[in-house]
Amino acid sequence: MFELYILLLFMILGAIIAVEIKDLLSSVIAVGAVGLGLSVAFLILKAPDLAITQLAVEILCLIILIRATIRRDIPTLNRRKEVVGSIIVLLFIGGFLFFAYLALKDLPSFGHPIMRVSQNYLAEGLRKTGATNLVASVILDFRAYDTLGEATVLFTAVIGVLAVLRRIGRKKVDEVVKEEDE
């Protein structure tokens, strides 16, 4: 699993660049590099469905984020940094990592999952659902309500975007002021 370490190191570096760079467009592109690295990592971890989905989603995400940042010519924020807040956040993150390290000893070690539930899916997936791709048999048959909930969330998000970005039926600025006077 040597290549996985290199890929994770690449993703961590990309994330640090995305967080610390001044220019917003460069930051968005760096986070796109992190997402594409995640797609390759899924491929190495033997999850081809996830790799395809992550690739498509990442490109869509990049387009939307670039749409949000481009032509805004935002001045880079040159204010002095709040040192105290950063130090407190770093302390918190250090504590989080320490306790995560303690807790990780109780997890099964890497490469040896427990698979108490999915043993059943692996053994009987083909006979019960007729799907050769067992991931598809889980999301569409054994746990189809998850997918129904996912569709509901997607629909709600689309409705929310339409409601937030609509042009028609929005109050003019003057009307809002008038209402507040009354």
Binding site: L45, K46, A47, D49, L50, T53, Q54, V57, P113, M115, V117, S118, Y121, L122, G125, L134, V135, S137, V138, I139, R143, D146, T147, G149, E150
Partner: peptide, 13 residues
């Protein structure tokens, strides 16, 4: 490999 987390993460993505 375990198909259950893959199915859950497919939804999550």
């Amino acid at each position: 490999v375990d198909p259950l987390p893959q199915a859950l993460i497919l939804t999550n993505i």
